[in-house]
Write a protein that binds this DNA or RNA. Sequence first.
DNA 1: GGCTGGCACTCCCGCGCCGGGAGTGCCAAT
DNA 2: ATTGGCACTCCCGGCGCGGGAGTGCCAGCC
Lengths: 343, 343
Amino acid sequence: MSEDRRLRVLRAIVQDYVHTSEPVGSKALLERHHLGVSAATVRNDMAVLEEEGLIAAPHTSAGRVPTDAGYRLFVDRLSAIKPMSAAEQRAISQFLEGAVDLDDVVDRTVRLLSSLTRQVAVVQYPSLSRSSVRHVELVPIGGERLLVVLITTTGRVEQRVIDVGTDLVTDDGEQALATLRAELNRATSGRTLAEASTELSGVPERLDPALRDLVRAISTALQDALVEEREERVVLAGTANLARVGPDFTTSLGPVLEALEEHVVLLKLLGTVAEEGGGVAVRIGHENPYAGLHTTSMVTTGYGAGTDLVAGLGVVGPTRMDYPTTMAAVRAVATYVSRILAQ
Amino acid sequence: MSEDRRLRVLRAIVQDYVHTSEPVGSKALLERHHLGVSAATVRNDMAVLEEEGLIAAPHTSAGRVPTDAGYRLFVDRLSAIKPMSAAEQRAISQFLEGAVDLDDVVDRTVRLLSSLTRQVAVVQYPSLSRSSVRHVELVPIGGERLLVVLITTTGRVEQRVIDVGTDLVTDDGEQALATLRAELNRATSGRTLAEASTELSGVPERLDPALRDLVRAISTALQDALVEEREERVVLAGTANLARVGPDFTTSLGPVLEALEEHVVLLKLLGTVAEEGGGVAVRIGHENPYAGLHTTSMVTTGYGAGTDLVAGLGVVGPTRMDYPTTMAAVRAVATYVSRILAQ
DNA sequence: GGCTGGCACTCCCGCGCCGGGAGTGCCAAT
DNA sequence: ATTGGCACTCCCGGCGCGGGAGTGCCAGCC
């Protein structure tokens, strides 16, 4: 009883099933893979694999289908991420080069990823909590309102309107704003948002008392920006690919679409990034904490300017997916996006 | 042969079909609507309606189903937009009140609309080409790069990075920027983007020649922002509702999802706003120019601060939808969003 | 002990058949 | 113009029935 061959059989089953979408039987396996053994032997192996919970039969006397555990073993030990061809790499790179701003980068990325994998792509905007302040700008608008514009090193621009007690569109006001602007930027520039926010607690002492409240308001505005729910964003593309999966998937379609609308859930899943497997994390079927995604797998990784990750991206597809290729695409896209962001 | 009664029959058919999702027969009709006539009479009317192309039978000896033309007649002449209850109006208003910025307004709007109608909601961001300049801000970043931040009256904030020839992080540079900033805002504030852009052609004459190139660059940046494809944005919500429609709709699902990803198409459809019917436009089935949407209807309207429309919103659903209710929801949401935007 | 060919068995799947029922179209009568 | 009656059509669900793919097991063989 060769443990080794049994795993080869499992691999063959996964590959065939991914390819044909139909339960694979012992005979069909032999036709497409030249394992050097007979159908009967394969059947024995299959029986053991089923015993171990790696494959299952939809009903007696049908072919076998990989279970979630089977896929898990496959991605962990039986497959290698396919390297992408030079041509593909060039295409990816060129497609992303053309982006003019962050929105455009994210937009292109998500489209690219979905068309490369022919699945649903998910891309998270660079997380504010992991970004640093590049610049803070104060813009007086209307009478007593102030627009605070925050520009991060990751290229995100966030704005918030603050009500101030006094009219700022005066010479005095302009003067005060200029001072404050310089002061603010000195205190926050280069720091993460969290650091910047605490740092601002110290600034008021040195300033005109009248401005203290204002600074405090700005500090809380920064803090506000860090509240997850509100400022973490994800974008999707390629949901139409779900419809192509096959008839067996149509029942899952509703729940999956619902899950994809729960951006909070997606963010959580994109957030937990694994380090094994070239930084690409795979969550298969029921491994997924969210019930709506039990029929799907998620392949994710992190990206960011330089080495520190600022966000995640990945794809969602049926558990029956081509893992090596998908993982390759996800990894490649992440690499190139990171390169672009680093400028 | 009473023309009037025949239309009442059509109306009854539409209502029943929308309600049951099944072809409606003469007998079933009588049970649910007390038209004062017999089944045979209804059958005669149905025959005529079919002749006129307003209803159709899936096969001989089945009930009738409205055609696109039937729905059209229904919305044009046989139905009135249902007023929303005071409670509903309050709920809508309160839900939208809580928004803190434009992104939040749009996000809440699209969620609200999809949950009210239980269909796919589509909301366009206020169009840049129909917005006016509130403020232009110049932020020097890095060595020789300048970030131009444009804030519109509709609350949108657009940014663009410009490469300038000289280093601006000097005292002289700061000085020049301050002048330029004031000059720019005087020239553009309150104008539409298009006006502002042309207006800027005049500014350079009065300025230090060294700055002319810069102004020209800013002018083209404004122009850039007007290029449709790039800066018109739409957001969707409630795609999961498509899966709930029914088994007969599953085949259309793929094409519809594809169509919904073509934001350019959606924008075009949201753009052409009709004035009849309380400003709510309905595009039914094949009336839709895009093949992927032939099985769906789209109910749209415009919204904006005050009287001038700056963008569109609406829903996409199966042609078999509850038009009066949907139209009411679309109209109500548009009204309240407009109110919020007007602040 | 592991591999193999053979064989009986199971169960799905597609097919044709059939009865019931909903719905129609037509006609003669009012 | 409307109505009741009636014959007809066609879908739909259930049933039975091979055919076929696939399995499990066993006895033999290396």
